[in-house]
Amino acid sequence: MGFHIIVCAKQILDPEGPASGYGVNSATGQIILPKGVPPVINPYDENALETALRLKDIMQVNITVISMGKNLSKAVIGKALAVGADNLIFLQDKAFENLDSRSTAYIISAGIKKLGNYDLVLAGRQAGDTDAAIVPHFIAGFLDIPCINLVKKVEIIERNIRVERSLPDGYEVLEVEMPSLLSITGGGDLRKADLQQITDAGKKPVTIWTAENLGIDASDLKQTVWQKIFVPVHEVECNFIKADSPKEAGAKLAIKLREDRII
């Protein structure tokens, strides 16, 4: 029969984009997001997907990717189908925007419950926009299954999951039974799809479930409310060391640090 693995993948603005386009609209107090920064799959969710694919490489595994949002793009998340995911589910509704971690997890867990059978849920360690690292724990809470975070390696032994969890001074090995949820850090970059796979993926359907399909009452959902947002100011005046050659600049830097009593 094999295993059914669900991977949670969030669509976000490329977090590697420059800081310059981010700002605050002084009239509304709302966030200004940069133009021209493309949407991507949250990088840690790509790691989660790659983790699932590596399990699929060695055993019989069916992968469903699930993504929640208001405007999800098949061009972005569809990449998951091209690299080897079997199904893609969009939990999409105009009510699914700017929600707090609990509501987000509530909707995703409703989607997972609707899917029914699963053995393992993988999520990213944190989303590059919220930087919260909360949703995976809360999904597990709603599903009432165990959760392990910061996982960098996964092995399936019968119905046991054996993982390595990153620690500041190494890692620990943990075991838990299926079904469980793991939030992934690392575990390898997502593989690339070839042209044929990309074409084939375009033909695979995407299932869309709305709040109504999930039996969710939009008035139960809570939005993230900020008291205030601001752009942090860290900037200092840089003393650029001027010299005739890079070699000389290196020596002059050392002298300057001594003069200024930094060393």
Binding site: I241, S245, A249, G250, I262
Partner: peptide, 18 residues
């Protein structure tokens, strides 16, 4: 933007003399 001291250059040339 956040550095108090900076050298613009290839580190391979700057670092040994530093």
């Amino acid at each position: 933007k956040v550095a108090r001291y900076g050298v613009v250059g290839d580190w391979k040339e700057v670092l040994p003399s530093f």
